[in-house]
Design a protein around this nucleic acid. Structure first.
Lengths: 161, 161
DNA sequence: CTTATTATGGGATATCATGGGATAAGATGG
DNA sequence: CCATCTTATCCCATGATATCCCATAATAAG
């Protein structure tokens, strides 16, 4: 499974269509579905995005929780209920529902923000401010990162809440 | 087998008919029956919904419980005795029995709530409140979900918080 | 510099959701 | 067994919008 890298800003038109960056489309398509899964972030004014395979893995994780347990119920009520599966059109665009456009305060541009195994969709101005804060935090704490061994690539640690 | 995702709100008419969302109809139909299985939730003022194939798997799980045990009796009394198999009409609608409408306190709108392998039917206002509580519970316990391994083989899952 | 790919924009068509009415089927009573 | 009533099923129409198709401009790659 490929990675979502870079931050790419595309336009959203009057109908709510936006081109998904070509590199993201390749990574998404390799997961078995020509489209995206989107849901509202719980932490930021942004959308969380991933491919179908990633969502199926999440689904498998929820299934491994005890059937009918409170935790399973709560994940289902938030994660699946909030997710939208949106297919690419012939030109590699998706149509964003008005509810998600409002949630993210999109105007005429959309920022696709790669996050390794997943990506986010932001209002570009808001993301800029968010990124500055992230840089400041890393700099002030001199944060480091352990490089994972092997050829599976970084899989975990992505924020979906 | 596809996933039930999103929350879609449709109208219920005077006859008790409601359109099953097109994406749900596709997922349900792929399970071998053009219709839904519905039964009353024992935890929430909602209906549990699934496809025929899922109900068959549930049946297989209950069959593995001890014959005549209290648990098996209880499951049988709730899952099977209470279940209704309702076919789509020509326009992709189902007719909800008055007993289920009352149980869920439906007025003029119905929320179809995707939950991965199954879905629920709620009164939209009640679901909104329920979803907020679920978010709060997940946030307050900092619940995490181990991402199920993909095709990297049987390694330990990674946290997604 | 040329070609290919990607992104953008507009319009037509198909699908979905909604609403109403006719007909058929099932239940009930005589 | 038949008649009647109720309601489930089927059929049709309409409006909204999602999907599809096409063209053009911009950018990336060779």
């Amino acid at each position: 499974m490929g990675l979502f890298l870079s931050t790419i800003i595309n336009k959203i038109d009057k109908k709510g269509r936006v081109s998904v960056p070509a590199s993201f489309r390749v990574t998404l398509g390799s997961q078995g579905y020509q489209g995206v899964i989107l849901f509202r972030s719980y932490k930021y004014p942004a959308l969380e995005g991933c491919g179908l395979q990633y969502m199926e893995r999440l689904s498998g994780s929820v299934d491994q929780l005890d059937l009918f347990s409170q935790t399973q119920d709560d994940f289902a009520a938030t994660l699946f209920a909030d997710s939208m599966q949106i297919a690419f059109d012939g030109e590699g665009r998706i149509l964003l529902p008005e509810s998600l456009i409002s949630f993210v305060s999109l105007e005429d541009q959309v920022a696709f923000v790669g996050r390794g195994a997943t990506f986010q969709i932001w209002n570009p101005e808001k993301f800029k401010a968010h990124q500055e804060k992230a840089r400041e935090r890393l700099a002030s704490h001199s944060q480091t990162l352990k490089l994972q061994a092997g050829n599976c690539g970084p899989r975990g640690g992505d924020d979906v809440s």
